[in-house]
Design a binder for these strands. Structure first.
Length: 847
RNA sequence: GCCUGCGUGGUGGAAUGGUAGACACAGGGGACUUAAAAUCCCUAGGCUUAAUAGGCCGUGCCGGUUCGAGUCCGGCCGCAGGUACCA
């Protein structure tokens, strides 16, 4: 007999699909549309198993929706700007553009054999001038709509390489190449006004019913709404121009426990004092050392510097508080100044203890409780406490009530105002790098910052650049930077910052609806295809990418590029787990880590015998080289095996650790299905008693697999298919019933293993492509079992079971249970305390 | 540090609060074969037992709710993701 030869089958059916152009998406009023999108890949050059998993999942959904009568859009593109291209240019010469387009070509060639149902006519890369030119047009529209502005913000500064570093490039507070201690330095940068929409972005989360609850929760916490009071402490001995310190607090109810005022080292007051106070200048400089990440700032030792300034307490002008500069206060949040209440905040408590400041309890657990002097007393805000030093509201009230009462009181007294504040900061989009979308503005000595004219777009990147010196080549380009002012025509200079690559990925989903349009979108196409019905991608994008996309969809609506119905661009979201792998590391002569590909490591050693350090599994990433190339699997076993395997072995939302074993087994199984199909196709067995049983199994399989696919339970669906195949192989049913069952099997498998399914379908005499066959529907009547097995528990432990007709009344079940041998023995002549019968499920006898 | 998840046999994992371990991998045994490959069949959480029946233990740890907890609640431990310039 012939063998299952995936290489022939897969080539044959991919050609059939291509010849019929079956995946080309066009508007069609006759069918409901369905837009399925997987997060597009960064073109690292190698497809890895994480990609295969991601795109196979999307493909299952796309193909399933095609067979349920939908007009499906399933596009693919490349998130092509970003640092790795520049790093490659620095490391081994060449140009980021060549590197990137080379990688794209390579990955496309690796992706195509997978047989994905992608409309390749819509493909684009974000580094195509046609794409980023439209992005520049969007930027200009957003600028005109007052959604973009400039302000100062801190970056990681490498004082040796004289360049800005990404957070990733700061290792233990030091620059990755120079090893120099990194400093935080301020630069004027471009920002999107996402924080203006904080409340809206937070409230709208509630409507995202088909998003994972955890993602909504993470975004909610990220946006971080808080209610508080903003007010001013008047300065007693402030320098010129500073007669007060504006603070924001979420706990105005603790105002009578205030012990000090803290300001950020970047606070204007701190900067002014720095000029005449070398000690403070040194302190601030020390505070500015290290990276900019929240983690680094948060984990740093908390320290302060007494400025010698004093402020007056707003409720008692004779009460003075010291003003400290403190490294844990961020200029970006609130007003960059706080008051500390050590009794009810652990950080303030530690600070007060360190600097010997008073600790005054404002509230106690109850009226007669003693204040805790060992640590701050911080009960949940929803708990009732006794206010020993309250000034508004009841003596016993919750923290939430007390905060509201305190705000009302302060407002009435003219001490500040209640304010709803968000943790979410504006989105800084400036990057001091070459390989990104140029920000289309010009700096003119006379006119200031001038937007480029739309007819001059795209502002393309110059090709003649080098990466032999650190820093942004655009900054030192001899001619690109020079231009004329679009407003007055005098010589001017281009903005040399490029855009954050998150901008590129914040609207690509909209561009896919009309990828060739000479405006960012074609509104008619966008209105038809948007929203994305099912978006699929990694959980690592739960906050930034998804939040930025939600902001951008709103901005695109404001600027007329998306309909109002598309401001939440992703109707349903599925976050797949990551594919993880061990990391293999050695050290170079300077002690810096060097990573090795899994294929270069055998038994913990490199080819030359060097032992590698094995670091536990983490997300596959190119920089750590813990990636597995799917090509070897596709070449050895075929795409269907690779597809089936990545779906079968793990629940889609969970991380999966890649191991090489298992692909072999999948291949065997598909071979078995193929042979079984050949057998059935040539069988002439007559009808018989087994037919009904097989058809029941078939309908059960239809029901369960459909449910599995619809709920992203692909691994469960596959387990049911295994069960069905086992039943089919063992069945003694006649040829006709078996053929019907096998054709259904082909259909059920077609989203996962489309090539094999087409082949089975053709072998069994199916009409046309299985791709176009309507998805089978389970017959409810065939799913009903007549008798059920009821487990009998005695005191919650399974002791026996009975088989009863499905509809047997409770009373009769009880009689049978009480007559059961195990129950009789356990009762030993007594009566049960309780008899619980859950119809069709279980019985519990409580003794 | 903070936010969010996750933790079940040797392994991947299944299980609307209702028989824990479906389905599969690796393993063990067998059939076929001169032999191997391929294929097919059987077996399988741990302990106890000659074996079966039966019993006991068991879903990271400790406690709680419930007739009944892998599932719900509280507290720990470990791991992963994010932490605003990795994408």
């Amino acid at each position: 007999m012939d063998r299952y030869t995936p290489s022939e089958i897969e080539a044959k059916w991919q050609k059939a699909w291509a010849d019929a152009d079956v995946f080309k998406a066009t508007r069609d009023g006759g069918k409901p549309k369905y837009y399925v999108l997987e997060m597009f890949p960064y073109p690292s050059g190698n497809l890895h198993m994480g990609h295969v998993r991601n795109y196979t999942m999307g493909d299952v959904i796309a193909r399933y929706k095609m067979s349920t009568g939908h007009n499906v859009l399933h596009p693919m593109g490349w998130d092509a700007f970003g640092m790795p291209a520049e790093n490659a240019a620095m490391a081994s010469g060449g140009h980021p553009k060549d590197w990137t387009y080379g990688n794209i070509a390579q990955m496309r060639e690796q992706m195509k054999p997978l047989g994905l149902s992608i409309d390749w006519s819509r493909e684009f890369a974000t580094c195509d001038p046609e794409y980023y030119g439209q992005q520049q047009a969007l930027f200009l529209d957003m600028l005109a709509s007052d959604l973009v502005y400039r302000k100062n913000a801190v970056v990681n500064w490498d004082p040796v390489d004289m360049t800005v570093l990404a957070n990733e490039q700061v290792i233990d507070g030091k620059g990755w190449r120079s090893g120099a201690e990194v400093e935080r330095r301020e630069l004027t940068q471009w920002f999107f006004k996402i924080s203006d929409m904080a409340g809206e972005l937070r409230d709208a989360l509630e409507g995202l019913d088909n998003w994972p609850a955890k993602v909504r929760l993470m975004q909610e916490n990220w946006i971080g709404q808080s209610r508080g009071l903003q007010f001013s402490f008047s300065l007693i001995n402030g320098p010129d121009g500073h007669d007060g310190v504006e603070v924001y607090t979420t706990r105005p109810d603790t105002l009578l426990g205030a012990s000090f005022v803290g300001i950020s080292p970047d606070h204007p007051l701190a900067k002014q004092l720095e000029a005449d106070n070398p000690d403070l200048a040194a302190f601030n400089a020390e505070c500015r050392k290290g990276g900019t990440t929240e983690e680094a700032l948060e984990k740093a030792d908390k320290k302060g510097f007494d400025t010698g300034l004093r402020v007056r307490h707003p409720f008692d002008t004779s009460w003075e508080l010291p003003v400290y500069v403190a490294n844990f206060i961020l200029m970006d949040y609130g007003t960059g100044a706080i008051f500390g209440c050590p009794a009810h905040d652990q950080r303030d408590f530690d600070f007060a203890t360190k600097y010997d400041l008073p600790i005054t309890a404002v509230y106690l657990e109850a009226e007669d409780s003693a204040p805790d002097l060992q640590e701050a007393f911080v009960p949940p805000k929803s708990d009732k406490v006794f206010y020993a030093k309250g000034f508004a509201g009841e003596p016993v009230q919750t923290g939430d009530e007390a905060v509201e009462a305190a705000i009302a009181f302060c407002e009435a007294q003219g001490v500040g105002q209640g304010k709803t504040q968000y943790r979410l900061r504006d989105w800084g989009l400036s990057r001091q790098r070459y390989w990104g979308c140029p920000i289309p503005v010009v700096h003119c000595a006379d006119c200031g910052v001038v937007p480029e004219k739309k007819e001059n777009l795209p502002i393309t990147l110059p090709d003649d650049v080098s990466f032999d010196i650190p820093g942004n080549p655009l900054d030192r380009h001899p001619t690109w930077r020079d231009c004329t002012c679009p407003s007055c025509g005098k010589p001017a200079q281009r903005e040399t910052d490029t855009m954050d690559t998150f901008v590129d990925s914040s609207w690509y989903y909209a561009r896919f609806t009309s990828p060739q349009a000479d405006t960012p979108t074609d509104l008619a196409e966008a209105a038809y295809w948007m929203n994305v019905d099912q978006y699929i991608g990694g959980i690592e994008h739960a906050i930034l990418h998804l939040l930025y996309s939600r902001f951008f969809a709103r901005a695109m609506h404001i600027t007329g590029h998306l309909p109002a119905s598309a401001i939440e661009p992703f109707d349903a979201l599925f976050t797949q787990g990551m594919v993880t792998h061990e990391i293999y590391q050695t050290k170079d002569a300077k002690g810096r880590p060097v990573y090795h590909l899994p294929e270069d490591v055998t038994d913990g050693k490199l080819v030359d015998g060097t032992e590698v350090e094995i670091i536990p599994s983490a997300k596959m990433s190119k920089s750590k080289k813990n990636v597995v190339d799917p090509r070897s699997i596709v070449e050895a076993y075929g795409a269907d095996t690779a597809r089936w395997f990545v779906l079968s072995d793990s629940p889609p939302e969970r991380d999966v650790e890649w191991t090489a074993s298992g692909a072999e087994a999948t291949s065997k199984f598909l071979g078995r299905v193929w042979r079984l199909t050949q057998e059935i196709a040539s069988s002439e067995a007559p009808q018989n008693d087994a037919d009904q049983g097989l058809l029941r199994d078939m309908h059960k399989a239809i029901f369960e697999v459909t449910q599995g696919v619809e709920s992203f339970g692909f691994n469960a669906a596959i387990a049911k298919i295994y069960g069905f195949v086992n039943a089919l192989a063992k069945s003694k049913a006649g040829a006709q019933a078996k053929r019907e069952a096998a054709k259904t099997l082909a259909q059920l498998m077609s989203p996962m293993t489309p090539h094999l399914a087409e082949d089975m379908w053709a072998t069994l005499g199916g009409e046309g492509l299985v791709l176009h066959a309507a998805w089978p529907v389970a017959d409810d009547a065939m799913l009903v079992e007549d008798t059920v097995t009821l487990p009998i528990q005695i005191n919650g432990k399974r002791r026996s079971e009975i088989s009863v007709p499905k509809d047997m009344p409770k009373e009769e079940v009880e009689k049978l249970v009480l007559a059961d041998k195990a129950v009789v023995k356990a009762l030993d002549g007594g009566t049960p305390k309780k008899l619980i019968v859950v119809p069709g499920r279980i019985v519990n006898v409580v003794i």
